[in-house]
Design a protein around this nucleic acid. Structure first.
Lengths: 350, 350
DNA sequence: GTGAAAGCGCTAACAT
DNA sequence: ATGTTAGCGCTTTCAC
């Protein structure tokens, strides 16, 4: 016996979650009319629309997006996995992404993956929610899962990190190589001669790029990388590495760090433990230009990561029609070198 | 004519999103069996379960959670609105929340609300996704929306901020009052006598609590708040306020700042613009004990916000059965004072 | 412009 | 233990 009146809807529910049916009954129209009213571009007469909106307001009605997703085949959800949740840059990126996406009525389903190099288990969950796109910030995924994403036609966007099997995925990164190059150029110009590099984990491709640009430039000027330390992001590891570098008989006169967090740690070791004047006695350069880099306490030379420009790219990738996503694309965004006192070799600061 | 064979399913789709039907056909069982296989506690014979899992794996099948939400009336989604996305504390909280919730197979739908004092428009969207709970970090919502949440039985949890109409909502905050009190006590013990307060926006209740505890203690010892400045969170505003405080003929000998970000800004102004020795010549205390507080450059005395304990409370509120949520509850978590050199009045540092 | 009806992918009650 | 069936709340033809 189809088309029975559903008994639980005989009484209009005032609290909890009213459905389009409830609104329809209150407004004296069909449920389809309600749907049209809440669908952009749905054709409803002005008068009925008014009635419906009135009823909807009275009941506190809001369309259930899960139901909509079921039909439309798209959820409006963007999956985001964050690899380094404690990094300032990532927070800024998330903030920018959230702002831009909510304008487009897309929403972020988020995971933070503390220190794990692959986001697999999170991505599995995200796929269950049928995310329209997947943004991986500073993490990679396994080859198996990458395959799934391709099969399910979920566009994947890699943000500031390429690792593992990335065929067919779009990526947005800062120009790591050029950044490394410009830092090297600046340091040589400042008169530094014993240039050390302190790097992040070797497994990340961006590490290589940053160091590569740095080294390439040095070599092109007949110089070399004077010393090199560690593969880690950790603040404490960076401090330890700085201690080692500065304890050796042959000490570098400047250290280029993989990121600003490490640079700040190194700077503090140099300043408070070795009592070196930062700039004249030991130069320090970082990468990323986080907020603290410009603080008076640090005045850290760095290469900026233009968050807004990068996120804008990400968003345009998300919003463009899926068809156009099929070709792999890499977007490399130029930052800008920020020359500050931490690499001012001539005059002491203060 | 009900029960027609859906033509589009005649051919089993290999890519895209297979449904339980597709799996059922491949495994030669009913669609319900597939559902049971993926439902914890569903009764399926071992043999059939095997067949089904095999087929599911072959098709890359994963249940569609939107469909499940429709029926179950709960989405597994937790809405989170973040008021101060750039704050270190909030990042840590988000990280902890994400970790704990994903263990419980709950997922975070997130918004960051830059500087807006109310999260209304974001919450509207979140309600459309039928979030099971709503966590507001450092933002409030309008009375109207608060009413909606109550009507829709969406539990709201206020994290570290109570503002507006919060009746019936749970809240988890650090013990702001006690923190203010302990800071005051410590400063008096250190011998400071002209104690100034630099505050956050007046509209937030936590501001009041922090200052209240501070003032109460001073009064109880026959002292008073020597000076007071601004209502803002902004780093630049804090720096300006510090400049004003330190430029007056009667200058405070210690400044208690509403949070560590402001404290660091004030400290840098004092140190680099007024060339004051931090501690002996001017004490600085903050609130929150962010990572930078313990850095050698700052050594900032602060009252810690125990992120993990706070988030644990939030999570237990989220996971406990909705029925128990009806009574309003406030959870006030004690932090711990961290005494550092920035309020060491006797010996100069370095 | 509007309503009736089908169905998105799933769960749950019921039958067997 | 398994299949049948009726929806969850919505969008979308298709008539009128």
């Amino acid at each position: 016996m189809p088309n029975v009146v559903r008994p639980k809807n005989v009484i209009i529910k005032r609290s909890s979650n009213p459905s389009a049916h409830d609104v329809a009954r209150l407004a004296g129209v069909s449920q389809a009319a309600v749907s049209r009213t809440f669908t952009p571009g749905g054709s409803v007469a002005k008068a009925t629309r008014e009635k419906i909106l009135q009823a909807a307001h009275e009941l506190n009605y809001r369309p259930n997006l899960h139901a909509r997703s079921l039909i439309k085949g798209e959820s409006g959800l963007i999956g985001v996995v964050i690899g380094f949740p404690r990094s300032f840059f990532v927070m800024e990126a998330l903030q920018a992404l959230s702002a831009r996406l909510s304008e487009a009525r897309k929403h972020i389903l988020i995971f933070t993956a503390e220190r794990s190099e692959t986001a697999d288990s999170y991505v599995e969950d995200l796929l269950q929610y049928r995310v329209d796109s997947l943004v991986l910030m500073g993490v990679g995924i396994s080859a198996r899962l990458a395959e799934h994403c391709r099969a399910k036609q979920v566009p994947v966007i890699l943000f500031n990190l390429r690792a593992g099997d990335t065929r067919g995925f779009a990526s947005v990164t800062v120009n790591n190589r050029e950044g490394g190059r410009q830092i090297a150029e600046h340091l040589l110009k400042q008169g530094y001669r014993r240039l050390a590099f302190m790097g992040g984990p070797a497994s990340y491709k961006t590490t290589g790029e940053r160091e590569l640009g740095f080294e390439e430039y040095l070599v092109s000027r007949g110089a070399t990388v004077f010393d090199r330390e560690i593969d880690s992001f950790d603040r404490e590891d960076a401090a330890q590495a700085a201690r080692r570098l500065l304890s050796r008989k042959a000490r570098p006169d400047v250290i280029f760090c993989w990121n600003d967090h490490m640079a700040v740690a190194a700077m503090e070791v140099a300043r408070y433990e070795f009592e070196l004047a930062i700039g004249p006695e030991l130069g320090i350069a970082g990468f990323g230009d986080i907020e603290q880099a410009s603080w008076p306490s640090f005045q850290l030379t760095s290469y900026s990561q233009p968050v807004d420009a990068m996120i804008q790219r990400v968003v345009s990738l998300i919003l463009q029609p899926p068809r156009a996503q099929s070709t792999a694309r890499e977007f490399i965004i130029d930052g800008e070198i920020k020359r500050r006192q931490s690499t001012q070799r001539i005059r002491a600061r203060i």
